[in-house]
Deep mutational scan, measured.
Amino acid sequence: MIINNLKLIREKKKISQSELAALLEVSRQTINGIEKNKYNPSLQLALKIAYYLNTPLEDIFQ
């Protein structure tokens, strides 16, 4: 099972779900679904998340 630290990292960087969704060009519901482990992001989306949060991919999804 993948450990998902997206919410923790996003909140630590003081970025809202809506702000991150806008940067990634996805819906806020997509971010919410990823954070609640209801949706697994594509590799492309996971890499974009890591880029915009300036955090290694391995720290977000373990």
Rank of each mutant, 00 (worst) to 15 (best):
Q44P: 09
N37P: 01
L20G: 00
Y52T: 07
N54K: 10
N32W: 09
T30G: 01
F61G: 03
E11C: 08
L24G: 02
I15H: 03
A46L: 09
A46Q: 15
N32R: 15
E19V: 09
K14L: 09
N5R: 10
L23T: 06
I9E: 04
Y39G: 05
N40A: 14
P41R: 02
L6T: 03
L53Y: 01
L24N: 00
G33Q: 14
N37H: 13
M1S: 12
A21H: 03
N4D: 04
R28E: 14
K48H: 05
K13D: 02
L8K: 15
P56R: 11
N40I: 15
K36V: 10
L20I: 04
Y51W: 12
N32H: 12
I31F: 02
L24S: 05
L47M: 13
I34R: 01
Q62N: 11
R10I: 04
K36Y: 07
L57I: 13
S27C: 06
E58A: 11
I15Q: 03
N40D: 08
Q29D: 14
V26H: 01
I15L: 13
R28P: 15
Q17S: 05
K36G: 09
M1H: 13
L23C: 10
A21Q: 02
N54W: 05
S16N: 05
I49W: 02
Y39K: 07
I3S: 11
I60G: 01
L57Y: 10
K36L: 13
T30H: 10
N5G: 04
A50T: 03
K13A: 12
A46D: 00
L8C: 14
Y51Q: 09
K36M: 15
K12I: 11
S27V: 04
K7E: 10
P41G: 03
L43W: 13
L20N: 00
V26E: 03
N37L: 08
S18Y: 10
Q44H: 11
T55H: 06
T30Q: 07
K14T: 05
E19W: 06
E25R: 13
M1E: 10
L45F: 05
A22P: 00
L45Q: 04
L57H: 05
L43N: 06
I60K: 00
G33V: 10
I2M: 13
P56A: 08
Y52E: 05
Q62I: 12
N32T: 10
E25N: 14
L43Y: 11
A50Y: 02
K14R: 12
T30S: 05
K13W: 08
L23Q: 09
E11K: 11
N5Q: 06
F61K: 01
K48W: 06
E58W: 11
I49H: 00
L24P: 00
Q44I: 12
S16F: 03
I31L: 14
K36D: 12
T55G: 03
I60E: 01
M1F: 13
N37M: 13
S27T: 12
L47Q: 11
L8I: 15
V26G: 02
N5T: 04
L24C: 15
L20Q: 00
I31S: 00
E58F: 08
E19R: 14
L45M: 08
N37D: 05
E35K: 01
Q29P: 05
K13E: 06
K12P: 01
L20M: 06
F61A: 03
Q44D: 14
T55R: 03
I9D: 01
K38I: 14
A22E: 12
K14A: 11
L47N: 08
N32G: 08
E19L: 08
K7N: 04
T55P: 03
I49Y: 02
L43D: 07
A50S: 10
A21V: 03
N54E: 14
L57R: 03
V26Y: 02
K36E: 15
P41H: 01
K12A: 14
N5L: 07
K14P: 03
K38H: 13
E25Y: 09
P56L: 06
L45T: 05
K13H: 11
G33S: 15
P56Q: 07
E35M: 04
Y39W: 12
V26L: 05
Q29H: 13
T55V: 12
T55N: 03
L8F: 12
A50G: 04
I3Q: 11
V26I: 11
N4W: 02
N37W: 08
S16Q: 05
L8E: 15
E19S: 10
I60Y: 02
M1W: 10
Q29Y: 09
L23M: 15
K7Q: 12
K13T: 06
K13I: 07
I2C: 14
N54Q: 14
P56T: 08
L20P: 00
L24A: 10
K38W: 14
I49L: 06
L47V: 11
N32K: 14
N32E: 15
K36A: 12
L6D: 02
N40E: 14
E11F: 06
L43H: 12
E25L: 11
N5K: 07
E19D: 10
A50W: 04
S18K: 14
Q44M: 09
S18T: 12
I60T: 02
N54D: 15
S18H: 10
K38Q: 15
S18D: 13
N4G: 05
K36I: 11
Q29N: 13
A22K: 14
G33Y: 14
Q44W: 11
E35T: 02
K14S: 11
I60Q: 02
I34H: 01
Q17R: 09
M1I: 15
L6V: 08
K14D: 08
N32L: 09
P56S: 08
I3F: 09
A46Y: 03
I34G: 01
F61L: 04
K14E: 08
S42Y: 04
P41E: 03
S27Y: 03
I49G: 00
V26W: 03
L24H: 00
A21E: 02
L53W: 02
S42L: 04
L6E: 00
A50E: 05
N40R: 15
I49P: 00
I15A: 03
N40C: 15
S42V: 05
L8Q: 15
Y52F: 14
P56F: 06
T30F: 14
I9F: 08
L20V: 00
L57W: 07
K12N: 11
G33I: 10
K36T: 15
Y39P: 01
A50Q: 04
K38D: 09
L24I: 09
K38E: 14
L45R: 00
L24R: 00
Q44C: 14
G33A: 15
I31H: 01
Q29W: 09
Q44F: 10
I34K: 01
E11H: 08
A21P: 00
K48I: 04
K38C: 13
E11P: 00
L43A: 10
L45K: 00
Y52S: 05
Q29C: 12
K38T: 13
K13Y: 10
M1L: 14
S27E: 06
I3P: 09
E11A: 08
T55C: 08
K13G: 04
E11L: 12
V26S: 01
L43C: 14
I3C: 14
Q29R: 13
D59R: 08
S42N: 08
E58R: 08
L6F: 01
N54A: 11
Q29M: 09
I15Y: 07
I31A: 01
M1D: 09
Q17L: 10
K38S: 10
A50I: 04
A50R: 02
E11S: 08
P56V: 05
L6Q: 02
P56M: 07
K7H: 07
S27I: 03
S16E: 05
R10P: 01
E11Y: 05
L53H: 02
I2R: 12
G33R: 15
L57F: 11
I31E: 00
T30N: 03
I60H: 00
K48Q: 08
S42T: 13
N4K: 03
L20K: 00
K14W: 06
I31Q: 00
K48V: 04
A21W: 02
L53Q: 00
L23K: 08
N4I: 09
G33T: 08
L23Y: 13
T55S: 08
L47E: 09
T55M: 10
I34A: 01
K13M: 13
K12D: 08
Y51R: 10
A46F: 06
L6N: 03
I60L: 10
E25S: 12
Y52A: 12
T55E: 10
S16A: 06
A50N: 01
S42G: 11
S27W: 03
L8W: 08
P56Y: 06
Q17T: 08
T30C: 15
S27N: 08
P41Y: 04
R28W: 15
E58H: 12
L47H: 09
K7R: 14
I34C: 02
T30R: 07
L23S: 07
Q44T: 13
S18Q: 11
L57S: 03
Q62G: 14
K12G: 11
A21I: 03
I34E: 01
N40Y: 15
Y39S: 06
I15E: 01
F61D: 02
I49S: 00
Y52I: 14
Q62L: 11
